[in-house]
Design a protein around this nucleic acid. Structure first.
Lengths: 225, 225
DNA sequence: CGAAAGTTTGAGTTGCTTCAACCGCGGTGG
DNA sequence: CCACCGCGGTTGAAGCAACTCAAACTTTCG
C-alpha cells in the first residue's frame, strides 16, 4: 500500500471535476486527503456524521444498509473514478448506509467546506454536482423498479444484460453473495437461477465468468411470461 | 378551476426558492407557467422528454413506474409546495416515471434554462437544489430499506408511524390501493394487515381514519420477532 | 496443507399473492 | 325516489416463488 499518486491528475479526469480550470484543480487537490482502507475495512458506519465526500482512486467500495440480524442490503458499488457520500453531505443527517472496502482501497476525501467553496466559485461545478446526484437518483429508481416489478429470474437477467461486456463475455466483479444482496436475493436463489439459465441455454456459467449466449431470448424473458 | 394566484408569493415560501432575493424571485415568477391537470390526468408519461421542473401549488401528484401488465409501482407523493421532475432535468434522459394527478391540481412549470440561469446567478440557490435532490435520494434509500429488510407488517407499521399525526389520529391521504403500491404490497395484504393490527390493539381503524393506540408496542414489532 | 470462506444442491416451509366472491357506499339515470 | 351500476375495500381459500435450514463440495489463502 505504498502508492505515490498525482492527486491533481487523478481529479482531472473525474467527470465531476472535469469542468474545473487549472487554478481550481490545484485548490481541490490541495484540499483533498488520502484515505487508505484495507479489504473489508469500513470507511464509515451507519450513524456516523458526514462531513465530506469520497472519491475512489484505487480499489472498490460497497454501500450497504445494515440490518438488525447481521444481514445487509447492498445499495451500490463504486469503482475508481466514482464519488460517494456526496448526498448526505448536503443534509445535516448522519449516514444511513455503511461503506466498506471490497478490496484494499485508496480514497480521496474532500471536506464539505471545500466543495461548497468550489460551488460558489464555479456554477458549472454546481451543475456537475447536480448531474451526479441526479444520476444516482436515477439508478435508485431503477433498482426500485427491478425489486418491485420483476421476479427473481428477470432480475438476474437484467443484471447480466446491464453489465459491461466484451463480446459475449461477462465477469462478476465480486462475491456472488454480494451480487445476490444487490439484487435482493439469497445466494442460494442466485445460484439456482444461474444454473437454470445455464441449462436453458441462455448463458454459459463458469465460476465468475459468464458467457451471454442468447440476448434476444433473455430480453424476451423480461417481457413475456 | 378558476383560481387566481400570486405566483411570486407562492414561490417565496417554497424551501427551494427561499434564498432568492426580490429581484430573482420576480424573474423566477415571470419564468414560470401555470399548468392545470384534472384528477387522474397525467402531467407526463414515462419516456417523455424532460425540459423543466414542476412545483405543486394546489392538489396532489403521484410519481409511479408503469409496468407491462397495467400494474404500477408508486414511488412518491407530492403535495403543495413540493417540487418534482428536477432530477431528470439535469440528465439528458427521458422520464422513467409517470406523474399523475391524485386530485384536480394546479402546477407551476419552470423551464430548465431558467433554473440554470438561477444557479449561475446565485450559488446558494444551487445549494438548495443540491439539498433538495439529496433529500429525495435519502427518501429513496429508506424505501429500498423498507422493501428489502422489513416484512409486510413492519412496512405498514413504519408507514403509520411516519405519517404526520395530530394527537393519535392519522388519516390515509389517498386510496388504500395507492398506499399499498407505495409499500410494495397488494391491496388485499394491506387490508388484512390493518385488520390484524386492529385486533391486536395497536391501532383502531375506521375507513381512512386510524388511531394509533400503542406506539411502543408497534415500535417493538420493528425490531423483535 | 489445512482452515475458512464461498458456492452449490436438496428438502421442507412460509409469507405473500392470486383468484374469486362479496359488501357497502356514492352517484346517476330512469 | 329508488334501482342499478361501479368502484374501493374486505374476506376466504388455494397456490407458489423465494426463503430457510442443512449438508456437501470447491476455492481461496495464510
Amino acid at each position: 500500500m505504498a502508492i505515490k499518486l498525482d492527486i491533481e491528475a487523478l481529479l482531472a479526469h473525474l467527470p465531476l471535476f472535469r469542468s474545473l480550470d487549472k487554478t481550481q484543480l490545484v485548490l481541490m487537490a490541495q484540499a483533498s486527503q488520502e484515505v487508505r482502507v484495507a479489504k473489508h475495512g469500513f470507511v464509515f458506519h451507519r450513524g456516523d456524521a458526514a462531513s465530506g465526500l469520497y472519491v475512489v482512486a484505487v480499489g472498490g467500495i460497497k454501500l450497504a444498509i445494515p440490518s438488525a440480524n447481521g444481514q445487509e442490503k447492498v445499495i451500490e458499488f463504486f469503482s475508481p473514478g466514482q464519488a460517494f457520500g456526496e448526498a448526505v453531505m448536503f443534509l445535516d443527517k448522519p449516514y444511513m448506509v455503511q461503506a466498506q472496502a471490497l478490496e484494499d482501497t485508496l480514497l480521496l476525501w474532500i471536506d464539505k467546506q471545500d466543495i461548497y467553496a468550489a460551488i460558489d466559485r464555479d456554477p458549472s461545478f454546481a451543475r456537475r454536482m447536480l448531474a451526479g446526484l441526479s444520476l444516482r437518483l436515477h439508478a435508485l429508481v431503477q433498482d426500485i423498479e427491478t425489486v418491485n416489478l420483476q421476479n427473481a429470474s428477470q432480475r438476474v437477467i437484467s443484471y447480466l444484460l446491464k453489465q459491461p461486456r466484451e463480446g459475449e463475455h461477462v465477469q462478476f466483479p465480486f462475491n456472488k453473495n454480494v451480487i445476490a444482496s444487490k439484487l435482493g436475493l439469497t445466494p442460494e436463489t442466485l445460484s439456482r437461477l444461474l444454473h437454470q439459465l445455464n441449462s436453458k441455454g441462455y448463458i454459459a456459467v463458469d465460476g465468475r465468468d459468464v458467457h451471454i449466449l442468447d440476448v434476444p431470448g433473455m430480453e424476451a424473458q423480461l417481457y413475456g411470461r
